[in-house]
């Protein structure tokens, strides 16, 4: 095996993807089926939240992947800007629609969960607000890719947007935290952090945690499979474009 940069070659990458796609997809399916069935049917209802807690098996993994997808886009954007590997830029492009889907899933499942728990579909809680902002970042990123014809220009511009956006996303997270405390001093009955995210693992007993872990692994594998598949599609699209261009020349 040579260096990892071998896979920056589109052809090599496509071949490798073809080999790994089926096992990864299989792994994702197995994990998701096991995790979701286990979580939905073989865990007790929470004594306080009842059966509503079970949406955690969709909500938490989706929310995690929404952030991780953006992080992956940031890394691949940097690689593109520094090393000019096309596969890297195309992987970032391929990840964005998956990331935005995960964000929407997290927002919708959060709303469905929030309704019985907090008595409202939506609250301007810092965590919820941050995800809404993340959703806007995804939309802008995808729209910019779609708006530009020249693929290299689009890759450059979206990469810079992704990097600048990341800085502002972190800034927004702090701003939103500050802003909500500023508005609702002390009156934070509906702290989402108590129910979702990191606090979960401490609060929720192992009965809930193990199926959740399986679901998270399933979502990670699903994300990897989708990114590989979509990146390969993007490579094929570019190859088609290149072949057509060559044909026009002849």
């Amino acid at each position: 095996m040579g260096s990892i940069w071998e896979y920056a070659n589109p052809v090599k990458f496509s071949q490798t993807v073809s080999r790994f796609l089926a096992p990864v997809a299989m792994g994702a399916t197995v994990c998701l089926v096991i995790g979701l069935v286990w979580g939905f049917f073989f865990t007790p209802d929470d004594f306080r939240q009842g059966a509503t807690v079970k949406i955690i098996y969709l909500h938490v993994p989706a929310a995690l992947m929404a952030i991780n997808a953006w992080f992956m886009m940031l890394v691949t954007s940097l690689i593109w800007l520094v090393r000019r590997h096309h596969v890297s830029a195309l992987a970032a492009k391929a990840a964005a629609p998956i990331g935005v889907t995960m964000t929407v899933i997290a927002l919708i499942t959060g709303a469905i969960w929030g309704q019985p728990m907090w008595g409202t579909w939506w609250a301007w809680d810092p965590r919820l607000t941050s995800f809404l902002i993340l959703f806007l970042f995804y939309l802008g990123y995808i729209a910019l890719w779609e708006a530009i014809d020249d693929p290299d220009t689009a890759a450059d511009l979206t990469s810079v947007l992704c990097i600048v956006g990341s800085v502002f996303a972190v800034l927004s997270r702090y701003a939103v935290n500050f802003w909500n405390q500023g508005l609702h001093q002390g009156a934070s009955v509906m702290r989402a952090g108590a129910i979702t995210g990191t606090d979960t693992e401490e609060k929720v007993s192992n009965v809930f945690f193990y199926p959740l872990l399986v679901c998270i692994i399933g979502f990670v594998l699903l994300f990897v499979a989708l990114v590989l598949l979509r990146t390969r599609t993007e490579i094929h699209k570019r190859r088609t474009r290149a072949l057509l261009a060559r044909e026009r020349m002849a």
Binding site: P151, D152, I235, R238, R241, A242, R246, M249
Partner: peptide, 17 residues
Amino acid sequence: KAVAGATAISGYDEAFL
């Protein structure tokens, strides 16, 4: 005038052929 062929495609799409 550029002739058709692999070199006729500029940098960014060449890698995909």
